[in-house]
Every structure is written in structure tokens, then in C-alpha cells.
């Protein structure tokens, strides 16, 4: 079986192809995730639409109090970009711990959010940062928070004719920390990850790799309202997160083990924030 390969160069062309091909047209960003699926025979697309040559998809720009990151910006660029490091170092810290440099050279921010793999690092970080994605189609444009974007493992609200074109990150955080807890190789995905952000709207804590999608509990985060972060509060929130989450079991750890690690790692992330 052969696969049709489309390599559009403009945004309009991408949206037109996406509208035409519908679910038969698989978007390819960095290919690090699709490649694994195809190698394992899980996915055999009829047509692929490469985003590699689309003008404007690789831009990083500050827009007032927000940062706009094009869908095709690679993990490696986010790891090293001077503006990112200056404006929101947690983004760089998160993308720097994904897999290895070979993967980071290709994997993109748009790709990793659209894939919605439960064990990827960036989704939890982006949710804690209250980031939004721009979804465009031939018939319109909408913005969706990353929190609402990801529904479950590999499931998002992206429609068949839509393309994730941009990620928008507010720059109102006073402190932010991403902790990746691994149980195997340094290159592995996390067993538990915690992103904790103190922003103007309050505390946001997202726990990744423990369920179908990153776990954020606004009512528990609200416990921090009007209180200074200290070890007691950190422990309280950590324990509440561990109680609320019903973690999955996979090769990186059992559900019971993850529950214990969540309490510890959430607490530590909050202690880091306070430090």
C-alpha cells in the first residue's frame, strides 16, 4: 500500500488539504510519534500532510503579555531559545527533559500536544501554564485551552478539518517548576510528572503520566488562595492530589506506587516554588 505525501508551503494550502482529505489525511509534524505508530503497524495513513515547509509555523514571538509559539517549533529550540529561557524558563526545562536530543531535534510542540500521549512531558506543563492552542480550519479559527484540548489518551477536541497551528502561553507566572520523576532510563517518559505554576490567577498544579490526561484540580489548588506556600500547605495539596487521582498501572509503576509518588512529587514541586 502506498501513502500519498503532501508537502504544502502555505497555511491556506494546509487547511484546504485538511478539509479535502478529512480523516484520511494524517498531519505530520516532527514524525517522532507517527513513526513509532507506523513502525509498529498501528497506523497506516492513506495520505500524509507534512507541515515541515509551511511558512510561519516555526515562529516564536512575544505578543504583549503572551508568548506565541508556532506548532512546528521543535523541542530542541524550546530547550535553547534565549527568549523562552528569559520569559518562561519552565518551558525550556520541560522540553529539555523529553527523550533524547535525537528526538528533541524533530519533535514539535504542536505534535506533542495534538498526539495527547498520556506519558509525554509537555501537556502537563502547558496545562499548568494555562496555555491555549489555536485550531484553524478552512472555515474558521478557535482558541482552546490545553486543559480542554486533551480529552483522553490520544484523544483531543481537534476536528477532522482542523490544524493546531500555534500555542499561546500567558506570561503572568511568578514562579513555575516542572518535575519529572522517572523509574527507568533517563530517556524514558515520566512515571509521574508535576508542573506547578504560581500565576496571577492563582496556583495551578498539573500531574502528568498518571491517567488518560494530565490531572488538574482547581478546588485543591484553591487551598493556596491567600496563603503563603510553606511545607505544610505543600504537603496538604500533595496529599489531596494523591487522594483524588486514581492512577494507571504501566511498566513504569503500579497504581499504588504512583499514588505515593504523586503525594511526594507534588509536595516537592510546591516546596520548590516556595524556595
Amino acid at each position: 500500500m502506498s501513502t500519498a505525501w503532501h508537502s504544502p508551503t502555505t497555511r491556506e494550502e494546509v487547511l484546504r488539504l485538511r478539509a479535502e482529505l478529512g480523516e484520511d489525511g494524517t498531519l505530520v509534524a516532527g514524525g517522532t510519534f507517527l513513526g513509532v505508530l507506523m513502525n509498529n503497524g498501528i497506523l497506516a495513513p492513506e495520505a500524509m500532510i507534512s507541515l515541515a515547509h509551511v511558512e510561519g509555523f516555526e515562529r516564536i514571538a512575544r505578543d504583549g503579555a503572551e508568548l506565541r509559539i508556532g506548532a512546528m517549533v521543535t523541542h530542541r529550540r524550546l530547550e535553547f531559545d534565549a527568549d523562552i529561557r528569559a520569559l518562561c524558563p519552565m518551558i525550556a526545562d520541560t522540553f529539555a527533559v523529553v527523550a533524547n536530543p535525537r528526538v528533541r531535534n524533530w519533535a514539535t510542540i504542536g505534535g506533542v500536544l495534538a498526539d495527547a500521549d498520556y506519558a509525554s512531558d509537555p501537556p502537563a506543563a502547558m496545562i499548568a501554564l494555562d496555555a491555549r492552542v489555536v485550531l484553524e480550519s478552512a472555515s474558521g479559527r478557535r482558541e482552546v485551552s490545553v486543559e480542554d484540548l486533551i480529552e483522553d489518551v490520544y484523544q483531543t477536541v481537534i476536528e477532522e478539518d482542523e490544524v493546531l497551528t500555534e500555542v499561546i502561553v500567558p506570561l503572568d507566572q511568578s514562579a513555575a517548576r516542572y518535575r519529572k520523576f522517572r523509574t527507568r532510563s533517563h530517556e524514558d517518559r515520566p512515571c509521574v510528572s508535576v508542573a506547578a505554576v504560581q500565576a496571577s490567577g492563582g496556583l495551578r498544579v498539573a500531574v502528568g503520566a498518571v491517567a488518560g490526561k494530565p490531572q488538574i484540580f482547581h478546588d485543591i489548588c484553591a487551598l493556596a488562595k491567600g496563603r503563603a506556600m510553606d511545607s505544610g500547605l505543600a504537603r496538604e495539596i500533595g496529599t489531596a492530589y494523591a487522594e483524588r487521582i486514581d492512577p494507571i498501572t504501566d511498566a513504569r509503576g503500579s497504581s499504588a506506587y504512583r499514588k505515593r509518588v504523586i503525594a511526594v512529587e507534588v509536595r516537592r514541586a510546591l516546596e520548590d516554588l516556595a524556595a
Binding site: 513509532v36 533524547n100 532510563s185 533517563h186 511498566a251
Partner: peptide, 16 residues
């Protein structure tokens, strides 16, 4: 074998 690939079966990397 439930992890017959190098994503699910880890070998040490230099960073480990």
C-alpha cells in the same frame, strides 16, 4: 513480551 520495542524496553543511555 509486552514491551518489544526500544520505547517500552529501556537500555541504559549515556545520561544514566
Amino acid at each position: 513480551i509486552g514491551n518489544p520495542n526500544l520505547s517500552d524496553y529501556n537500555v541504559p543511555s549515556i545520561a544514566d
